[in-house]
């Protein structure tokens, strides 16, 4: 009997946390279903590119993807932009309370009318600021040009700090920093290290102000059409892959932070509790400003899940 083939396409290299987790899922899916399912992983955009993969999944041309959460806003699920809000999560505990809890499920449900079934959230990590000047307080970012991912929420975040957002493709960031097209940027340590950004930035402040992550999604029609036992086994494989993905993402960020410090090219500054609070106070107003776009309801639900109360800040 022919195995059921799941084409799992992604846009990053094989040896990144996401790439490794995809391979891990492929292996476990084969084992748990006893060969009834064969997961073919296509790395590096060989099958579909960043811009087209979600639409390809919707028409059923590919079964499984792990796009960055930023992809769901343009799809019409603006609620997903909640993940771009600065200081919406204080730490991994807050984050997982949302992604692995009821709110996460409700967010994934927003994708179903669009023919997509969300299976899991995979972490990349928390973002830090890098620039060519020390940043101990929010005012230190004022007037600087910061590269952001194309996102209306991140644009507002930078404007709130008095900085000037410039949306640039990820692949262009290194050169833009090197030539001074922009002064700074925000990313998790692992992205900074793999793109060698620390070579052209003198300072990093570990603000951990924002989150970068992925969602593993499948074509809904395909998923609902699977035999129930197979679906259960795949869910188990996905659960294991998610734990694996999150743990290696965290490990990679920790390792790359050490490597950046060891390189001696960038000073890594960990703000004190009071300094971090100042950043948080400066940035939390972005939540209110973006309320009409993202939805007050979803922001409130996240607050409830994490126990955050902006009025008590």
């Amino acid at each position: 009997q022919q195995p059921i083939v799941i084409k799992f396409s992604h846009v990053v290299a094989q040896d990144t946390p996401k790439g490794l987790a995809a391979e891990f899922f492929a292996k476990r899916a084969g084992e748990l279903t006893k060969g009834k399912v064969k997961v073919e992983v296509y790395a590096n955009s060989t099958l579909y590119k960043d811009k087209e993969e979600v639409e390809a999944l919707q028409v059923g041309a590919v079964q499984m993807l792990a796009p960055s959460l930023a992809k769901f806003g343009p799809l019409g699920a603006k609620e997903f932009e909640v993940f771009d809000l600065p200081y919406i999560f204080d730490d991994y505990k807050d984050l997982h309370a949302v992604t692995q809890g009821k709110v996460g499920q409700e967010l994934m449900a927003k994708l179903e009318p669009r023919g997509i079934k969300g299976l899991a959230f995979w972490d990349n990590g928390f973002k830090v600021f890098s620039a060519n000047n020390p940043m101990k307080k929010p005012e230190d970012l004022k007037g600087k040009k910061f590269r952001i991912q194309s996102s209306k929420v991140l644009e507002e975040q930078m404007r709130t700090l008095g900085a000037l957002p410039q949306a640039l493709a990820f692949s262009e960031v290194y050169q833009a920093l090197q030539t001074g097209v922009v002064d700074g940027q925000e990313n998790p340590y692992s992205n900074i290290y793999t793109q060698k950004m620390h070579e052209v930035q003198s300072h990093i402040t570990e603000t951990n102000h924002g989150y970068l992550g992925y969602a593993v999604i499948v074509n809904k029609k395909f998923w609902d059409g699977l035999p129930a036992d197979v679906r259960g086994q795949l869910e188990q494989a996905m659960k294991e892959a998610t734990d694996y993905a999150n743990s290696i993402a965290k490990k990679k960020n920790d390792e790359d932070k050490k490597a950046i410090i060891a390189s001696g090219k960038t000073q890594v500054y960990v703000p004190t509790a009071a300094e971090r609070l100042a950043f948080k106070k400066a940035l939390v107003p972005v939540h209110k400003k973006m309320e009409s776009r993202i939805g007050a309801d979803i922001i409130k639900q996240v607050y409830d899940a994490t126990g955050f109360d902006p009025s008590k800040l």
Binding site: K49, K51, E52, E55, A56, V59, G60, A61, A169
Partner: peptide, 17 residues
């Protein structure tokens, strides 16, 4: 492979700066 993917690729195939 669904034929719609052909239509999609016809646009996105050159949708690259």
């Amino acid at each position: 492979v669904p034929l719609e993917s052909v239509a999609l690729k016809l646009f996105t195939g050159i949708e690259k700066f």
